[in-house]
Design a protein around this nucleic acid. Structure first.
Length: 346
DNA sequence: GACGATGATTTTTA
DNA sequence: TAAAAATCATCGTC
């Protein structure tokens, strides 16, 4: 206990432990009311700072060392740590429990599916192929566009990984720095390993929120890229002349009810080398555009009427079948240019 | 480049 | 839920 009196001892030296000017200021309570007194105190402090010498610093260091070596210090330190843990940390710990972030999971899944994160799938070619298939495309004519897509996706992937690496490095560096700082400070104030752990957790959460922004931006970039390269509208090709003729023939020969059945659509699709949904699109567009401007289509209608009539003549002459697929609602020839179906377009 | 045509998608309607 | 209607984005022609 020979050091004990020194703990309470006020010194003339300068340092954390001995500060007569400040100590007096705190004790007598004169600092608040008396301006002159305060000036005097500040003057004293400044005077003391000016008189700091190597010797006084050494003295302070020695005092600090003596404190650290005090036999009661570890026990006292542990008690303080325990108290702190029981009070502050338990409250904070309960507040900071967070569920796994659903948004982050969605972003991760998407980046994985697009081939941006995870193992490289040939620069995202698998994703490109899947996207192209989903868009109803595919085929060799798209290969150039797909290679562009792959190149851009590869760029995005590269940027993403570089940035991610940077963030991770920065996070590790910062964490190490903070841990060292806290460990250093734990010699003079009660910082338990648990608190350091908690601080590391906070740092990681902060950095992961930055990472989420990076992931979000990457997802947006991929979406834009997809829409730019793989949106079916962007690589639209007009149907060939023969396909358009077949569709028009059907349309005008069923003008009273231009709604092909599923079977008829399939047959038309086969004949035109297009999909059933393309047939549906074509009829949808045709009906609405015809209805909007019947006059404009009159000439076309007459032409196909003549064509149908000629085909019908051929059929009766040669006994062969008509070219157009039939439907349960087929009128079997050119009809008046306004729909009679209860399905409308009046 | 302007502009109409056209295939595809999205929104509205019945 | 299918079709109508609106809209978008590209094609093709001048």
């Amino acid at each position: 206990m020979d050091d004990q009196p020194r703990l309470m001892h006020s010194t003339h030296g300068v340092g954390m432990a001995g500060h007569p000017g400040l100590a007096q200021h705190m004790q007598d309570g004169t600092g608040g009311a008396d301006g002159e007194g305060r000036k005097q105190d500040i003057g004293d402090i400044l005077q003391q700072i000016m008189t700091i010498t190597d010797q006084s610093l050494d003295e302070a260091q020695a005092r600090k060392h003596a404190l650290n070596c005090h036999r009661m210090k570890p026990a006292l330190f542990n008690v303080l740590c325990e108290i702190k843990e029981k009070t502050v940390l338990s409250i904070r710990g309960a507040q900071e429990e967070e569920p796994p972030d659903a948004q982050l999971m969605r972003l991760d899944n998407m980046l994985l599916a697009e081939g941006v994160s995870g193992p490289e799938k040939g620069g995202g070619s698998a994703a490109a192929a899947a996207a192209a298939a989903a868009a109803g495309g595919g085929g060799s004519d798209n290969s150039v566009e797909h290679s562009d897509y792959r190149a851009k996706l590869s760029q995005i992937r590269q940027i993403y990984h570089t940035e991610l690496e940077k963030y991770e490095q920065a996070c590790n560096e910062f964490t190490t720095h903070v841990m060292n700082l806290l460990r250093e400070q734990s010699r003079t104030r009660p910082i338990s390993p648990k608190e350091i752990e908690r601080m590391v957790g906070i740092i990681h959460r902060k950095f992961s929120s930055i990472q989420m922004q990076l992931k979000q931006s990457t997802c947006e970039a991929v979406m834009i890229l997809r829409s730019r390269f793989l949106d079916a509208r962007r690589k639209r090709r007009n149907f060939n002349k023969q396909a358009t003729e077949i569709l028009n023939e059907y349309f005008y020969s069923h003008l009273s009810n231009p709604y092909p059945s599923e079977e008829a659509k399939e047959e038309l699709g086969k004949k035109c080398s297009i999909t059933v949904s393309q047939v549906s699109n074509w009829f949808g567009n045709k009906r609405i555009r015809y209805k909007k401007n019947i006059g404009k289509f009159q000439e076309e209608a007459n032409m196909y009427a003549a064509k149908t009539a000629a085909t019908a003549t051929n059929v009766s002459t040669h006994g062969s079948q008509a070219n157009s697929p039939s439907t349960p609602n087929s009128a079997g020839g050119y009809s008046s240019p306004c729909y009679q179906s209860d399905r409308r377009i009046q």
